[in-house]
Structure formats: structure tokens, C-alpha cells
Write a protein that binds this DNA or RNA. Structure first.
Lengths: 251, 251
DNA sequence: CGACACGTTGATTAGGATCAAGAGTAGTGG
DNA sequence: CCACTACTCTTGATCCTAATCAACGTGTCG
């Protein structure tokens, strides 16, 4: 199953270290966690709503997303996950998955047994706190998304999403704040924003025509960060990033 | 500051015990946590977006809600909290509050220092896991709310909210599943569902006229649970309740 | 009894959904 | 190598759900 020559949980460690300082012993213990690595094709599920989860998935490369399907068959995307994310720490600790996890692009995923996660979390409080913190930041982003789909109009909503991606991709080392590739179709953007694909298309065009962004395929170029952040009612506090990365209203 | 003759964190302990078995020593340690008790009047804030949080609030009685205010001034309610809830474990652990916490009714609130929470969580893994679990269930409810405001129409959305309250109030020992008092104005229901007060009013009337619920002031009576759950696309899994309380589609 | 918050209802508007169709673009197989 | 296919993106026309605007009723409390 292993793909790369030196499979490693390094991306996860990077993320955890971001949330809280870890000692050398912590880092060694985290890297020593047992895992199975798999290559997941785009569109494949790694977790399905209702599954009894026994493992957590760490994204080593690629993008994944979590979503729910409601009664009439329409889909709501709940979050986008990228390199280093411990996708689904939630599902695995809660036992029963309450949503789906699906590969957005081809992904390398490390599966870590649930019990190993629990154990290291309590044997090594620094790691435990970083993991808890990670799930709390996840929760914070969910709250922002509730406000986004609940109370912002389509134009503001899209601008907000583009700003969030910009910062998160930058922090993950996957792009520049003002220039990145969005690995999603407009249909997926629609499912993330609670809009229709047609309206996403028009909203993006509007943002483009206003000079806030420019697009080439799925590459997004942010012409004026301050203006886009203002248009998107975006304040980065909810991402709980370190100060030097909270480039919200400043250049 | 103490109000009742025997101030106690018992409601919090009840909630934590619900998520995971605690030993006698765990329970004693939890009840021995230092706290300041205050009586909070309805509409008063206990936490404001942006605050540097130093304490967690435990609701000993009454109802509170968490919300965000977006750029155009409109408000999105993120969750309703009730007796026993450790409102804002998130904000206090993350350090900076990313949303507001406001009393819905008059509340008795116990404020526990943040460091005491962290300490007990790692000294007593059972308690730590229960707290983590609690924040994870919170996250699960947020995810469901994203789907609710993002992809369900007003009728379904309201029915879903009424079902959620029914179960949560019952589990908290504050009402019957088929008959409870909803301590919210229609304006607040609107802010929870991403609708307008006028449309909430009409939607409630529609549910009433269809015979799914009946109302008297703010008392809600659910005429036919199965029908309401079906109308609300409600499946209780996301609440992560124990099996005997997952009365979703059955009687 | 007056003030005020909350609930209710009607009339009209608007933001976004839906329906429909054509234009890239990439992959596939003969 | 090119036709075929399928997916994504784009645009136009129309419809509909929920928002907005407005007014009145009801209950409560000082």
C-alpha cells in the first residue's frame, strides 16, 4: 500500500506543532504512530455516514472534503481538508461517522488506529492538547460556515470562501495568499456555499468583473486582498491562526 | 456570588457522565473544581466575540445561545445551550472567543478557570475524554446546522430544529419529547434558521395547519413524531445520543 | 393606561433556483 | 489521429421561495 519511499506522518506533525509546542519526545512519539498508507483516487470515499470508525485519516497529500446528503438528495459540503489535516478525528473518536469523507483529488492518506490516537493524546498532554485544539479550530470553522450560509448573500459568501481558502492554503504551504489553485468544480463550490452551480458561476463572474479576482481555469488570483476581504465580510480570527498570518484587512 | 444554598457542578457532571463512564474519584474531582457562580439576566452577554477567555461557563439552569453578527448587522445563532452544558469550552481553550454567548433566559452560570479545566482534563483521562467528546458532539451539531441552513427549505428546516430541541430537552431532563416549552422568540428562531421572523411565523403556522405540531404561546406539542421527523429530514445520529434515546423514526 | 415587545397577516419585491442549451476541454477507443 | 463522449463552464429566460415593507393585534408590565 505504501507509495512514497519514506512514508511519514510529518505533515500531521507540522499541523499539530502549529497549534502547540511539542517536545522532541512528543515529536518522536507522533512519528512512531503505526499507520497504513493508501492512495485514494479522486471521488472515492474514505468514510461513509453511519460507518463505525476505527481509524483516523491523515491527509499526506491531495484534498478531501466532508459532506452530508439531505433528504431531497442535495449535498452540503462541510469542510475542505488539505495536507496535514487529521480528517475525521471527530468521526473516529465519536465512534459512528455522522458525515461522509470523500477525496476531492487523488490523495495519499495515512490511516491511524483510533486507540493509538486516544492513547498518545493522554500519555502526551502536549500532543493531546494540540489534537483537541485542532478539533476545536475545526469547530470554529464550522461555526463560521453556519453564519456564512445562514446570513450572507451569495456575493459575500463566495468572497468569504475564497478568502478562507487563500489563508488556509498559504498556512498549509500549498499556495500563495493572492494566487492559488482551487481544486474544486463550480458544482462543489455550490455545495459548499449552499448555492446552485449556475449561481456560483455568475457570482464568480461578478467578482471577476468587479476586479476583485481574476481567473484562469481553476486558478484564482486575488487582485486586491483588502477589497475581497471587505466584500466577503472576512475576518480571519475564526481560523485561529498565528498573528503573523492573520493578514485580514492589512496588505 | 453564590446564589443557591448548595451551589454544585452536578449538572455538568451529569452531562460528562453521559458521554463516558467516570469513576468515583473522577466525579469527586469534577465536583471539587473551583468556580464562581453568577446569576445572569436574560439577554446579558457572558462572552463577547474577540474576548480573551479565561473561564469556561457551565450552565446550571436556564438557556443560553451562541451567535455571530455578520457584516450587514444580521445575526446567526449557532447553538442553543441548556442546563449542564459547558458553554464555551471552545472559546476558553482556544483563548480568543470567535463568537458571542448570550443568556436566552435568566441563567445560573458557574465560571471555571480555564487552567483548571485543562489540568483536570489531562490528570483524569476519563474526564478529559468526556470533555473532548462533548466538544466533538458540539461540532457534530454544527455540521448538521450547516446542512440545515445550507440545503433544506424553510419548512424542513423548522421541523428539523423542533425535532432537535425535542430530543435535547428530553435528554437534559427539561421536557418531554412530544411536549415542551421553547424558550425562544420567533425572531430568535429566525436567527437560528437563517430565515426572517415573518417567514418563521408562516412556517410554524403551516406545520400547525398540517397537523404536525400544535402551539400554545411557546409551548410546542408534537402531534406525530414520525411525521415531523420525516418532514424535518431528521435523523438523530448526529446528536450521538445513547441508543434508547435515538427515537428518530420509531414511536 | 400607555409603552413596548412579540406575534400575526397581507401585499409586493427580489435574490437565487430552475430550466434549457451551447461552448470549451479532456479522456477514450477505434 | 480523430471522432465520440462526458464533464465542466457559461449564458439566457423564466419561475418561485423567502425577503421586505407595512400594519394591526395581543399580552405584559410599570
Amino acid at each position: 500500500m505504501s507509495i512514497s519511499s519514506t512514508p511519514t506522518l510529518q505533515p500531521m506533525l507540522r499541523k499539530l506543532s502549529y497549534w502547540g509546542a511539542l517536545g522532541e519526545a512528543d515529536k518522536a512519539a507522533a512519528l512512531a504512530l503505526p499507520f497504513k498508507q493508501k492512495l485514494i483516487e479522486a471521488q472515492k470515499y474514505t468514510v461513509r455516514d453511519g460507518d463505525q470508525a476505527t481509524h483516523s485519516c491523515v491527509l499526506l497529500s491531495g484534498f478531501a472534503y466532508r459532506h452530508k446528503v439531505v433528504g431531497d438528495g442535495s449535498r452540503q459540503i462541510l469542510s475542505i481538508n488539505m495536507k496535514g489535516d487529521i480528517v475525521d478525528l471527530q468521526n473516529s473518536l465519536l465512534g459512528t461517522a455522522d458525515h461522509n469523507v470523500q477525496a476531492l483529488t487523488q490523495c495519499e492518506v495515512a490511516f491511524i488506529p483510533r486507540d493509538e490516537i486516544r492513547q498518545i493524546a493522554f500519555e502526551r498532554p502536549n500532543i493531546g492538547m494540540a489534537m483537541w485544539y485542532d478539533t476545536l479550530v475545526d469547530g470554529s470553522i464550522f461555526r463560521e460556515w453556519i453564519a456564512n450560509v445562514g446570513r450572507r448573500d451569495a456575493h459575500t459568501r463566495m468572497a468569504h470562501l475564497l478568502c478562507e481558502f487563500a489563508l488556509r492554503l498559504k498556512v498549509a504551504g500549498l499556495g500563495e495568499r493572492d494566487n492559488y489553485v482551487l481544486p474544486m468544480t463550480q458544482e462543489q463550490l455550490a455545495d459548499a456555499t449552499g448555492l446552485t452551480p449556475v449561481h456560483v458561476n455568475r457570482t464568480l463572474r461578478a467578482l471577476d468583473e468587479e476586479g476583485l479576482i481574476s481567473r484562469d481555469k481553476r486558478e484564482v488570483r486575488i487582485a486586491d486582498w483588502k477589497k475581497l476581504a471587505a466584500a466577503g465580510d472576512f475576518q480571519s480570527g475564526y481560523l485561529h491562526l498565528h498573528e503573523d498570518q492573520t493578514v485580514t484587512s492589512e496588505g
